[in-house]
Design a protein around this nucleic acid. Structure first.
Lengths: 269, 269
DNA sequence: ATCTATATTTCGAGG
DNA sequence: CCTCGAAGTATAGAT
């Protein structure tokens, strides 16, 4: 329906739309959205299902269970039509995080030489880790395909904008920094693991997420030492800084190239 | 337009919609969205502006500057109408985080007795802190209005679902736990501050965010000791647990009541 | 029902 | 232009 209307929303916040001509869309599930003549994605205002429409002459009250209300006052109807679309077969996607995780699970050595998959979605008390890998003590690092790796070679923090944030073991007693370091110099441990967080775009939140997992896994004697690896198609600068500061490795993955590389060249020595 | 169509999107990912009847919305800015008969908010597929439509018989190609493409193959047109809505006067909002921050800045004592505002959006190397406050050493805690406060009275961690995550000073050497404690017992320090994170709904991410600020501010001798206060209209349980474990205070704020309370009763002694 | 993580997030502000 | 954080985020999946 095209109509001149004003809209009031009272719920999680209060919002008001002064009178103007807008498109009103009422769907089969009772949901309502109000659209202006720009922006493809976001409605000006809306009520998500499940909700109920109480239709009075000139006023629509759309309410949901939690007491939120969308009130549409219709001043003038300019167009009105309806059609039953039926159910939609739905969208088929390719290239999201799940797919990236799948590809990396098939070629874990891309993330670091000697890495082998233990399992995807490794369960922990605070949620599943995207990938848990085991690693051999390969001192020499071979080159990688379609991947640019950043490793914490020096122990120097070098936290540009954030001086000394993690300098005093701010990450945690048995945290990833410690775990990462313990792999070198001391007597080799039987278990060596790596927790991998996969993201399309990695922000600071991804580093925090991985840090929480590492705090937990690093204390498990059956797993320790546990390296942290952040693998993403894009890693934000702030995320990279924080990750390096915490001894977490960053790997930028080229999705297209990885998809081309079904087999892992690194294992074909 | 209501039409039987199939849709292909190639861009940040690849997606396909098999043939079905859907609503196609073309807006004045050239943006296009494809809707099914459910969900008020999200289109099945779309192309955001700025973009261009190349219309051929039976096929719409919608492309943008970055090379993303939405291809709509129209098999049958069932309804077609258009209307020029003109520009929309726009939405007026009330009750978002900025508003809450404003109100709390005006009445900081609501967050804890003796608190006074130093400044809003206090700048740090890792971003601005919502509110920075100074606090007097008021041992007696007066009741607050429209607020339910949870304080770390006992030093016991008691981290329900996440055993011992923060138990071994996982928060950081000079972190908030330490800072919070140093205000009691020892010789009083000249500077006493509180970093306040304001959220409408506070999740674990809010606690992490505040923790990062506290790691930084707690090491500043001009500010320390720095308490951490999480102020929100709603605090998720997990966030509350993590906050308490890290010595961060939680304050639930009633927006409506706070808006009514322009003046802060606590300062009227 | 609640919570967590993702999103072609979108959107806006600030550097 | 990019980066970062908020959103009535919405939405899907898991506990």
């Amino acid at each position: 329906m095209i109509a001149r209307c004003s809209v009031d929303y009272v719920g999680r916040l209060t919002a008001h739309l002064p009178p103007a001509v807008r498109l009103l869309m009422v769907k089969a599930d009772g949901s309502v959205s109000v659209h202006a003549d720009d922006r493809a994605y976001k409605p000006l205002n809306w009520m998500s299902p499940p909700c109920r429409i109480e239709e009075a002459p000139g006023v629509w009250r759309v309410v949901n269970r939690t007491g939120e209300e969308l009130r549409i006052t219709i001043e003038e109807i300019l167009q009105d039509s309806s059609y039953d679309l039926g159910v939609d077969p739905g969208l088929v996607k390719d290239g999201v995080e799940a797919h990236l995780q799948e590809l990396l699970a098939a070629s874990p050595a891309v993330l670091g030489s000697g890495l082998t998959l233990v399992r995807r979605e490794y369960p922990t008390a605070i949620g599943p880790v995207d990938l848990l890998c085991r690693w051999a003590d390969t001192s020499a690092d071979t080159g990688t395909v379609a991947v640019e790796t950043t490793r914490l070679v020096e122990a120097v923090p070098a936290v540009g904008a954030v001086p000394a944030v993690g300098g005093v073991s701010a990450v945690g007693a048995a945290g990833p920094g410690e775990a990462g370091r313990s792999g070198r110099g001391e007597a080799p441990t039987a278990a060596r693991h790596a927790a991998v967080e996969v993201k399309r775009v990695a922000g600071i939140d991804a580093v925090e997420q991985l840090t929480r997992y590492l705090e937990l896994l690093g204390r498990d004697p059956l797993l320790a030492p546990v390296r942290g690896i952040l693998a993403a198609q894009e890693i934000k600068h702030q995320a990279r800084v924080l990750a390096q500061d915490r001894g977490i490795e960053c790997v930028v993955v080229d999705y297209e190239a990885l998809r081309g590389t079904k087999r892992d060249e690194l294992t074909l020595f």
